[in-house]
Amino acid sequence: MQPNDLDRIARQIRLRDLQAVFEAGAGHIGGEMSAIDILTALYFRVLRIWPDQPKHPDRDRFVLSKGHVALALYVTLAKRGFLPEEEIGTFLKPHSRLNGHPNCTKVPGVETNTGPLGHGLPVAVGMAKAAKLTGAGYRTYVLTGDGEMQEGSNWEAIAAAAQFGLDNLTLIIDHNRFQQGAALKDTNDLAPFRAKLEAFGWDATEINGNDMDQIVPALERRGARPHAIVAHTNKGHGISFMQDKVDWHHKVPNAEQYQIALTELSEAL
């Protein structure tokens, strides 16, 4: 699938995500909008996956470490055929398997349970290491938030990945510059990431994480070391009044804002 087609799918996923947040009255819309282009490129172009066989041993692994944007993953999985699309309407409802953070024991296509931050990357290192030990050809991708990189467990895993020579591992940092309560730079500013990752023995590339023409080649890049993509994104990307506003970490649009957002995303379709 080509970047133009991927852009169209990403807009459809944004629209469905927005609707689901509005209907559920909750969600993490800012970080969902920043990550959706990356999720789209992964699920509709890069990942070797079989929706009818979600546990296929040769499947590529994707770990959503920033588990609070579960809704964006659910919408993507549904669009890719892992879930019935109408099930998105159950998001956060009583007894729905689509809770606020993904559950691999219930939702096909989810590899490990995330929610507490700093968990996905260590698990992804284990997945990539397993492929090295068994000779399996699958590749492992993990998406973290930039604020999430403040968790020390990530740096334990980054060091281990380099030590283990995991050239089959790709980390994408959704660098939207905001965490829950404030800008990254006003909290515990880890940026710039690239030099730090390179110092740990990784290859690192920086891209515009909302530009398919840059996302796809970065995800498809292969090298001799673990690969980190520092994806510069915009929180709330695609909805003008949300962009780069920390308030939209998990705020829910009111009826008027919802209509504006719907219009903007629909026009883009």
Binding site: R61, E111, T112, H119, L121, P122, V123, A124, V125, G126, M127, A128, K129, A130, L133, T140, S153, A157, A160
Partner: peptide, 8 residues
């Protein structure tokens, strides 16, 4: 975490 990934 690595243990969980190895099992996966």
């Amino acid at each position: 975490g690595v243990g969980a990934g190895l099992a996966n």
